[in-house]
């Protein structure tokens, strides 16, 4: 790779508009500073870090140069990204707790059932919020498509449609196959089935990631009214609350079941693959990590929304650079 290519690759971290304006000057600075020698790793990291920050600024996630409405929109989209993590974690939790009610003893199950119901209802509420948000932006999307000015959206839309089609087709195939297998084969006896399920799980992850990315790209480009953006950001804050409730309920459920139903926890999916544990089953560990990351993103997004609504804008000279 030539030096020019390396510099171009580093500048690729910056948003196109920024690159067009400051790219030549920055490239000249690199040339003046490092000559024909290698750009030190520290400088490369500095460039990547600020490139990512510039992209975040452009979308309204950082800084106060974007309008409060743009910041609200960016915060809401960050919450949506957090929700994507919850969808994956929720699927994992649902699979892990398959047959949970039938496999565990009755006894006093009020709290644990309430926690399980909270996870389910929280998930349903979240899905409903996301669906409502999609319906709110739909007219704007239709308007954009009708205007013919949607070439920039073609790529993410096509990607999302392709992965969605692959996902649906693989799901139908997997369901049809599973229908012909015994309970034992579906629960660890048939290795080929386990491998296909693992591949399908990866496909689910890719599908959710691509779908979310497409939703973010589309929503960023849509012309939304103030009222719509405010409705979306209100829903994003509600979604964050439901995510917090889901995580709290799942962890409480986990804690109770680990002490009262260790056999069920030990037999759950994921156990025996790398480690076996009734206290920390790998599937629940992964699900909780995904949820924590998702919730952290959602809280950051909700705070961004709240700050933008207050109209907060740091104008201090010293605080303007990060």
């Amino acid at each position: 790779m030539s030096r020019a290519d390396r510099v171009a690759k580093l500048l690729g971290w910056y948003p196109p508009l920024w690159r067009a304006k400051y790219g030549p000057g920055l490239a000249a600075l690199l040339e003046d500073t490092y000559g024909k020698g290698k750009i030190p790793a520290k400088a490369q990291i500095s460039l990547i870090k600020t490139g990512v920050a510039e992209r975040a600024r452009e979308t309204g996630l950082l800084g106060d140069t974007a309008s409060p409405l743009e910041r609200q929109r960016a915060g809401s989209l960050l919450v949506l990204c957090g929700w994507a993590g919850f969808m994956l974690a929720g699927a994992l939790f649902a699979k892990f707790t398959d047959n949970w009610g039938a496999s565990t003893s009755n006894g006093d199950r009020t709290l644990v059932r309430a926690m399980y119901a909270t996870v389910q209802w929280g998930g349903a509420a979240g899905a409903l919020l996301v669906l409502t948000a999609a319906l709110i932006v739909l007219p704007s999307l239709i308007r954009l498509v009708r205007s013919g000015d949607w070439t920039s959206l073609r790529r993410p839309v096509v990607q999302a449609l392709c992965t969605g089609t692959v996902f649906v087709a693989s799901s139908v195939g997997l369901i049809l196959w599973a229908h012909h297998l015994s309970y034992r084969d579906r629960n660890g006896a048939l290795v080929s089935y386990e491998i296909v399920v693992a591949c399908w799980s990866v496909a689910v992850g890719v599908c959710v990631a691509v779908g979310t990315s497409a939703a973010v790209s589309i929503t960023q480009r849509l012309d939304l009214s103030r009222r719509k953006v405010q409705s979306l950001s209100t829903m994003a804050m509600a979604l964050t609350l439901s995510m917090a409730a889901i995580l709290a309920a799942m962890i409480t459920w986990w804690k109770i079941e680990a002490s009262h139903a260790p056999a069920f926890m030990r037999d759950g999916i994921g156990n025996g693959f790398i480690v076996t544990s009734s206290t920390f089953p790998p599937a629940l560990v992964v699900a909780s990590i995904l949820m924590m990351i998702g919730l952290a993103a959602a809280i950051a997004g909700a705070l961004r929304v709240a700050h933008a609504r207050r109209g907060g804008a740091g104008t201090h000279l010293g605080g303007s650079i990060s």
Binding site: G25, L29, D32, A43, T50, I321
Partner: peptide
């Protein structure tokens, strides 16, 4: 320009700004 700025800042403040930080 960028390079002259980094040189001058290093001279008067003893701080070397990275290229990303400077242009940011």
């Amino acid at each position: 320009h960028g390079y002259a700025l980094t040189q001058d800042i290093t001279k008067f403040a003893g701080v070397t700004l990275g290229p990303g930080t400077l242009y940011g």
